[in-house]
Simulated assay, not measured.
Amino acid sequence: MNQHKIFTMPFASVYPHYVKKAERKGRTKSEVDHVIFWLTGYNKEQLDIVLTEKTNFETFFKNAPQLNPNVSKITGVICGHRDEDIEDPLMQKIRYLDKLIDELAKGKPMEKILRS
């Protein structure tokens, strides 16, 4: 899938997959939301609006209240690419979220996922 398709894809179309992935591994929707809130600065009401309005990934990240200042601590490989080496800022943010959801699904403690 090319980047433009990912950027214009509604966040709401991927969100259930994040939740399902986490729940299959014994984690909760609430934990998925917590990770999203940590990364983006959104709160529950704002996330609900994003999901209802079918906001695309580009707008989701562009309108994020505040990217977490510890985002640079998210390192590693996701989808075959090192997070810190991804040049497109939007794709990097999408991969950061993918990485956090993967860590959640793998059972990492929340304090490690949130780089506390």
Rank of each mutant, 00 (worst) to 15 (best):
I101P: 01
V19G: 01
P69T: 01
K93E: 11
K99T: 13
I49L: 12
L51Q: 00
K108C: 07
I101L: 05
R95Q: 11
A12L: 04
N63M: 10
G26Q: 04
L114S: 03
K54T: 06
I101M: 08
V77P: 03
L51Y: 01
W38Y: 09
M1K: 15
E84F: 05
P69N: 02
D85H: 08
L67P: 03
N63Y: 09
F60A: 02
K99V: 05
E58R: 15
F60M: 02
Q3P: 09
P109N: 15
Y42D: 01
F61L: 08
A22S: 07
V32A: 05
E23T: 14
H34G: 03
S13W: 12
T28I: 04
G76W: 07
M110T: 00
F7V: 04
I86G: 04
G26K: 10
K5Q: 14
T28R: 07
I49V: 14
F37H: 04
T40C: 01
L67V: 13
E31V: 05
V77S: 09
D83E: 12
L47P: 03
L90G: 05
T52F: 03
N43D: 13
P109L: 15
V14W: 12
F57K: 00
G80V: 01
M9K: 15
E58Q: 14
D48S: 13
K106H: 11
E111G: 05
L90I: 09
F61P: 00
K29N: 10
V35G: 02
N68Y: 06
V50P: 01
G41E: 06
A22Q: 00
K99Q: 13
P69A: 00
V32Q: 04
Y42C: 04
T75R: 06
K106A: 12
R95S: 13
E45F: 05
I78E: 07
N70A: 13
Q3M: 07
D85C: 07
R95D: 08
N63R: 14
P16R: 09
S116T: 11
C79A: 14
K5A: 10
